[in-house]
Amino acid sequence: MFDLLPARSGRILVCGHRGHVIDGHENSRPAFRLAAELGASLCEIDLRITKDGRLVVFHDDILDNTSTGTGLISQLDYAQIAQLRTKARNGMPIDGQPIEPFEDVLAFCRDLGLGLIVEIKDKFEGTAYLGKVVGLLKEASMFDRVLISSFDYVVLRDIKRFAPGIRTMGINYHRLVDPAAAARSASMDVMNTDYPQFAPDVAEGLHAANIGVSHFLPRPEFFALRRGYGVDYFEEVDAYLRAGLIDMLVCDDVGWAVDFVTDCGLKVAKLDPAL
């Protein structure tokens, strides 16, 4: 299993959010391949389930925004979805890619040497969904290279009960009163805090409980206007990294994140190729 607390040894995991997505691709092979080439440790992907029970890698519940199709994924069989191709969310011209089954993406990213953060987005009852996820991870020899993530902490609690040994990450948009207590309630291994809610005391409390700290940053251009007004959040992130407060940066632009970590005098953590 890869280290989820690498900041203790001056290293940082860099995660490509849906891969390296600034060229218009997301949750597809070009995004994952480029993330690996640029030096990512992991990629975050999103799971959806089709009408006939196939898990596919796609962010939205509807096809309309980022594919050539329309409608709800949950109302279509995989054979129908397999005929479609991806399109860029921002209108950039790209070569459309297949909407791939989870097992194919697992194998592809395993061969690239990437770990994965697998976000479960669907609502479901019982453990059949979790059983599909865990079974495919084991078949692909990716069980030890994956974090299961969700905004739904009940899902994270339940998958730990269903598959002891699996590791999880809770996604958090808020400034919690006691982040470590929230993390412990779901037995999570990592908690991600999105900008702008991150603060040093969040990281310190999580680290005191041996819970990894992840921080999601918007794209660098998001901060450009603010920097023009004299507010430079990157200076704060630099200080957080140098102080060992962050174990993983999650960003759309993998190349920028890798360069930022290096400029801070730190190393990007790599997964053990023997995993």
Results as ranks from 00 to 15, higher is better:
Arg8His: 04
Ile73Leu: 15
Glu221His: 13
Val21Tyr: 00
Asp272Cys: 00
Ala183Asn: 04
Lys121Gln: 08
Gly265Met: 09
Pro220Ala: 07
Ala269His: 15
Ser67Gln: 08
Ala35Asp: 10
Pro98Leu: 04
Ala35Gly: 13
Phe108Lys: 11
Val14Gly: 05
Ile45Met: 15
Arg161Gln: 14
His17Arg: 07
Gln75Pro: 00
Gly39Asp: 09
Asp194Gly: 04
Tyr195His: 15
Leu156Thr: 13
Gln83Ser: 13
Phe260Asn: 01
Cys109Leu: 06
Ala186Asp: 05
Glu139Lys: 15
Leu249Gly: 02
Val56Asn: 08
Cys109Arg: 01
Asp201Val: 04
Asn27Gln: 08
Leu76Asp: 01
Glu204Lys: 15
Asp95Val: 15
Ala274Asp: 05
Gly205Asp: 05
Cys109Glu: 05
Pro196Tyr: 08
Ile171Glu: 11
Ala203Lys: 00
Cys264Ser: 15
Glu103Val: 02
Arg145Leu: 02
Pro6Arg: 00
Gln97Ser: 08
Thr68Lys: 08
Ile166Pro: 00
Phe108Ile: 01
Cys43Ile: 15
Ile73Gln: 06
Ala203Gln: 06
Val118Ala: 09
Ala243Trp: 03
Leu72Ile: 00
Phe216Arg: 07
Ser214His: 07
Leu266Lys: 08
Ile99His: 03
Ala269Pro: 03
Lys138Gly: 01
Ala269Thr: 01
